[in-house]
Amino acid sequence: MGSGTDKPGKDKTLKQDEIDALFQAAQGQSPQVSAGQPAPAADAPAVPKRRVQPYSFSRAGQISNDQMRAISLLNDIFARNLTHYLSVWLRSPFQVTLVSAEQIPFNEFIARIPALSYVCSVRLEPLRAISVLQLEMAPAPTIIDLLLGGQGAAGQLRELTDIEEAILSSVIEIICRELSAAWEPVGLSFHYEQRQMQTQIAHLMPVSEKTLCLNFEVKLEAASGLMNLAFPAVVSNTILHRMVGDWTRQRSHNPEIRARLRRSLGQTKVGAALQLPAFRVPARQIEEMAMPSLLRFPMSATVRPQMRIAGVPLYEAMPVRYGEHRGAQLGERKA
């Protein structure tokens, strides 16, 4: 295998053992030297080693860790906003917490839905895509009872009546509105469509489609449950890259800017109040009030007032006097 243009004295012909050594090096093996044979020539051309990894087609379109962190941050904001709004609207402690964000096939999402559950379709604009919102039925009786003027007692798990379903749909519309506010940076708005029966859920999107599933925990005083939201693949394919870019830039503030923002926020004034927990008084008792009269509160004398910041109860407290000023002695922080 010599070349006709080689210079005299330079033999470029490879021997069989040198050819074998080259093939072994290309396959990532150590060259084998037979007994009684000379080692391969030191000036033999080096073959670069290549590391081959198997490719999994099931991971195609998988959301990256940066995207998942951006999604969690965005929906933490949604959970806090919804907690504050519904606590004020229901006049009762209400807490929403993001539990997890994962990517699963739609048929797996359907398999997790309990037989007794509230499921509805939500339209995403401007993508004209359909997402699925599912709420466990355990918190529903408590929410409905609060909206009807009750104490928010837990009820028996059962199918909703038409009136109860209409009441609960108003809560779903508020959830969609808060989702739209939180997802505004990525240009998405959420619009409640209608409740879906169990037999209709599988027709909302292909069962094999990989969905982005967000899991939230909903807590009230008398009940708790999960709220799940499934997005179609078109959402992750079209807007998640913008989400990562936006939030990455927001996190890249230098220390001086962060310190200046912290000083500015430290001077911001927020509403605060020291008050007793909310209670209900019969309208007849108020109608019969006259001066002087005594109005008895339906609570024990040992109940301590609450220190509320922006309408959210943060501490148990006692009213005190400091010179000519009134004040509050803070106690335990409320969970």
Rank of each mutant, 00 (worst) to 15 (best):
A60H: 13
A60Q: 10
A60F: 09
G61K: 04
G61V: 03
Q62I: 08
I63S: 14
I63W: 03
I63V: 14
S64Y: 03
S64K: 05
Q67Y: 12
Q67F: 11
Q67L: 14
M68S: 06
M68R: 09
M68C: 12
R69C: 09
R69A: 08
R69K: 07
R69P: 00
R69E: 04
A70Y: 00
A70K: 00
A70I: 01
I71N: 03
S72L: 02
S72C: 11
L73P: 03
L73Y: 05
L73D: 08
L73A: 10
L73F: 11
L74I: 02
L74P: 07
L74M: 09
L74R: 04
N75G: 15
D76I: 10
D76S: 15
D76G: 13
D76W: 15
I77V: 09
I77H: 03
F78R: 00
F78Y: 09
A79Y: 12
A79G: 13
R80W: 06
N81W: 04
N81S: 08
L82V: 11
L82C: 07
L82H: 01
T83R: 13
T83C: 15
H84K: 15
Y85G: 04
Y85C: 10
Y85K: 11
S87G: 07
S87A: 09
V88E: 10
V88L: 10
S92T: 03
S92E: 09
P93K: 04
P93E: 11
F94I: 05
F94Q: 02
Q95L: 15
Q95M: 12
V96Y: 00
L98A: 07
L98C: 07
A101W: 04
E102P: 10
E102H: 06
E102I: 13
Q103I: 04
Q103K: 03
Q103N: 14
Q103T: 06
I104A: 06
I104D: 05
P105L: 08
P105G: 10
F106K: 04
N107F: 02
F109D: 04
F109R: 02
F109H: 03
F109L: 05
I110E: 05
I110Y: 03
A111S: 08
R112E: 07
I113H: 02
P114G: 08
P114V: 01
A115G: 12
L116Q: 11
L116N: 13
L116P: 10
S117L: 00
S117Y: 00
Y118S: 14
C120T: 08
R123Q: 08
L124R: 06
L124E: 00
L124N: 00
E125A: 09
E125Q: 14
E125S: 10
P126E: 07
P126L: 06
P126M: 11
L127H: 02
L127F: 13
L127M: 05
A129C: 07
I130L: 15
I130N: 14
I130Y: 08
S131H: 01
V132F: 08
L133D: 00
Q134M: 07
Q134L: 06
Q134W: 01
L135S: 12
L135K: 05
L135G: 13
L135R: 09
E136K: 05
E136C: 03
E136Q: 12
M137L: 11
A138M: 11
P139S: 05
A140C: 15
A140D: 05
A140Y: 05
